[in-house]
Design a protein around this nucleic acid. Structure first.
Lengths: 119, 119
DNA sequence: AATACATATGTATATATGCTCATATGTGGA
DNA sequence: TCCACATATGAGCATATATACATATGTATT
């Protein structure tokens, strides 16, 4: 029994080739962290609703707050997180700051999830 | 100014047609909840790593626990959540219970996310 | 410069969540 | 039936997080 063979369940279910295959295809710790952070971001109805708003058009903070019936602070905090992950971008116009989707990848990920939920 | 026109930012940025478009395309509360729950599930490195294991082959609980160097209890708890969302399915074989992906949709959602993270 | 407005941000709090530990359930063998 | 093994599950704890509240920052107008 080698290091990469896992002994468990009284039998050896996971053999060396499977273990190696898993270890080869398992993303790096960094990639796993980023991936989890991305999905975690989509894992909140407020953020998803914000993104659905931006699917239609760019909007300023109070536009979104009004549309979603939420406080300016709550929306601003969430926008800050979305911006940190580069899912949205900001554009200043006078006193207002308009947010829009950074790229269409966001849309396709969420649509992919929606397809699964709706089926 | 009608009900569906939002007054904010001293100017009316969001006009009636935009508001209506958003309200039309915004999924129902139930759909938003399910969607968030789905992404929330992918938003944890343990669960993502479990799914990456099952991408390769079906595995029993202690297989996964060994591979991921985690406790049986922790893995079992997470598998329970994944099963509740019908992302994985279980098959009993004697004392062991083998888990596998419920469908390939899971794979495509995660791959879509991975594409975004990796670019 | 002073004020008003739009947004950002720090802090606090309530809730959610992931893991551990202990224990229960289910299965097969002696 | 008794025991060992694989898994499931309930409770508790530590951490993470979403929002509210208060306040700071940045911009335009007068």
């Amino acid at each position: 029994m080698t290091d990469s063979t896992v002994q468990c369940c009284d039998l050896i279910h996971v053999h060396q080739d499977t273990v190696q295959h898993v270890e080869k295809t398992m993303p790096s710790e960094d990639a796993l962290f980023d991936l989890a952070e991305l999905f975690k971001t989509f894992g909140d109805t407020t953020r998803i609703r914000i993104l659905f708003c931006l699917f239609i058009d760019e909007m300023c903070v109070c536009d979104i707050a009004n549309l979603l019936h939420m406080s300016q602070s709550a929306i601003s905090h969430q926008l800050s997180g979305l911006k940190r992950l580069k899912l949205i971008k900001a554009r200043r116009e006078g006193k207002a700051i308009f947010y829009s989707l950074a790229d269409d990848h966001v849309r396709s990920i969420i649509n992919e999830g929606m397809d699964h939920v709706m089926e």
